[in-house]
Amino acid sequence: MPLGPLPAAVPPSWYLTLSAILFALGVLGFLLRRNIITVFMSIELMLNAVNLSFVTFSYVLKRADGHIFSFFVMVVAAAEAAVGLAIILTVFKNRQTLEIDEVSSLKN
């Protein structure tokens, strides 16, 4: 990746590198945070990073298929958010906590 004066346009690999950065940040948040809602938002960040990759590849291959895939990812993310937040609500109703370490009924 050449440094120095900024070129007029950036190659697609820069977009993919940005996607990798965002995905790594999502993994970091997923592993580091203890609040169940923030963990969930880190997952959404990872999904967004993957979407950026899809759209970039769509540009490189000059086909619209990547856009369709990222559309499906959005739909799945919406369904996931609805069910996941309902689960979080139920967990909070039963345990009065959002700490992910205190919800460990399935451990051992």
């Binding site: 190659p11 697609p12 769509s58 540009y59 086909r63 619209a64």
Partner: peptide, 14 residues
Amino acid sequence: LPESSPVVFGAFQG
């Protein structure tokens, strides 16, 4: 993607 053409706005209309 070793050397692909840079991303230009408006180059892909699909």
